[in-house]
Every structure is written in C-alpha cells, then in structure tokens.
Amino acid sequence: MAPYPVNRQYLPPKGWDDPQMRRNFGDPLHEQEELVSMWGPDIPVIDPSVALKQFTIAFAIFASIYGLSYIASPQMPAIRREYPHDGLQKAFGGHDQARTESVEEEED
C-alpha cells in the first residue's frame, strides 16, 4: 500500500538524509511522487479565491486610473494641417484622398 500523500513542502526542512528532497534513505515513495515531491507544484501561499479577489481589485484600480487619465487628457493643442488641392491629390496625382478640405480656397 502506498503511503499517504503528504506534500513534502509541508515537512520540516531539517532532519533528513536528503534535505533537498526531504526524505530519508529507504522511505517508500508514493505512486504520485511527482506531485508530492519538492519539485511538484508549489503550495499556494494564500487561498486562490483570495488571490483572484486581489488580482481583480488591482486590475480594476489599473483600469480606472487608465480610464480617468484618458478622459482627463486635454485636446490636441494644435490645429491639424490642411493641404491645398484636396489634400495634395492633384499635386501627387493620386486617387487616395488623405484629407479633403472643408473650406474651398480662393485661387489667384
């Protein structure tokens, strides 16, 4: 019969023949030794539900700071450049229109 699966991270760190693996010579191995050994998954320091709650709170704080900074950012302090001749379409001979002028210029 296999020994009761006790994660080796719960055992005291000193007093073993192999202190790294926390085992004595001749101890029977559990059939799922990979999971209960020192190289297995770590034991969570805090409860996963508490960790999820803290992560959610941190994400909400980050998102609210980002949202408030986006809302509070000022308008662009300059006027966008307007090019003559339908956004220089005639000058470059292209068909794509970068930005059309809303006000028709007076030609000399």
Rank of each mutant, 00 (worst) to 15 (best):
F25N: 10
F25K: 11
G26C: 03
G26E: 01
G26A: 03
G26P: 03
D27S: 06
D27W: 09
D27G: 00
D27M: 13
D27N: 07
D27A: 05
P28E: 11
P28Y: 12
P28T: 03
L29T: 04
L29I: 01
H30Q: 10
H30T: 08
H30I: 04
H30K: 02
H30D: 11
E31R: 13
Q32V: 02
Q32C: 08
E33P: 03
E34L: 09
E34P: 01
E34R: 06
E34S: 12
L35M: 07
L35Y: 14
V36I: 15
V36G: 00
V36M: 03
V36L: 09
S37P: 00
S37N: 08
S37K: 00
W39L: 01
W39Q: 05
W39V: 00
W39T: 00
W39G: 00
W39Y: 08
G40F: 10
G40K: 07
G40C: 05
P41W: 01
P41Q: 05
P41G: 06
D42A: 14
I43E: 02
I43C: 05
I43Y: 02
I43T: 12
P44R: 10
P44E: 05
V45H: 03
V45F: 10
V45M: 05
V45Y: 09
I46G: 00
I46C: 02
I46T: 04
D47S: 07
D47Q: 13
P48Y: 02
P48E: 07
P48G: 05
S49R: 13
S49K: 14
V50A: 14
V50K: 15
V50Y: 14
V50W: 09
A51V: 04
A51L: 15
K53V: 03
K53A: 13
K53H: 12
K53Q: 13
Q54R: 15
Q54L: 15
Q54E: 15
F55I: 07
T56I: 07
T56A: 15
T56G: 15
A58Q: 12
A58M: 15
A58I: 08
F59Y: 13
F59R: 12
A60H: 09
I61V: 15
I61W: 04
F62G: 06
F62V: 12
A63I: 13
A63N: 06
A63L: 14
S64N: 09
S64W: 08
S64Q: 13
I65T: 05
I65A: 14
Y66P: 00
